[in-house]
Amino acid sequence: MSNWVDACAADEIEAEDVRRFDHGDSTYAIYRTADDKYHATDGLCTHELVHLADGLVMDCTIECPMHNGRFDFTTGKAQGAPVFVDLKTYPVKVENGRVMIDLG
């Protein structure tokens, strides 16, 4: 089942950057690539529960600010030590300048 939620304005995220989005009891990370594609994942690193939105985006990689665990945020795939568990990803669409994510 779809559950589209309005996360933020598209221009609230800089190109090649990430923003935190809290909803209910959960936290998510919304990404904008250098070529203005949007993606969303769970907000906490699977290693030590640090907010990924504080980390660095380079190309399609988000790097956890605490221990530099890296994930491909388009697939959620963990890129190796110290992270081994993939991030959950969520469908994203942009409508009327708003970033919508499907929390299912």
């Binding site: 907010h51 504080d54 980390g55 790097e63 600010p65 530099n68």
Partner: peptide
């Protein structure tokens, strides 16, 4: 705050 400095130090 980690949120302020981590990205910059990493770069």
């Amino acid at each position: 705050p980690n949120a302020t400095i981590a990205k910059e130090i990493r770069l």
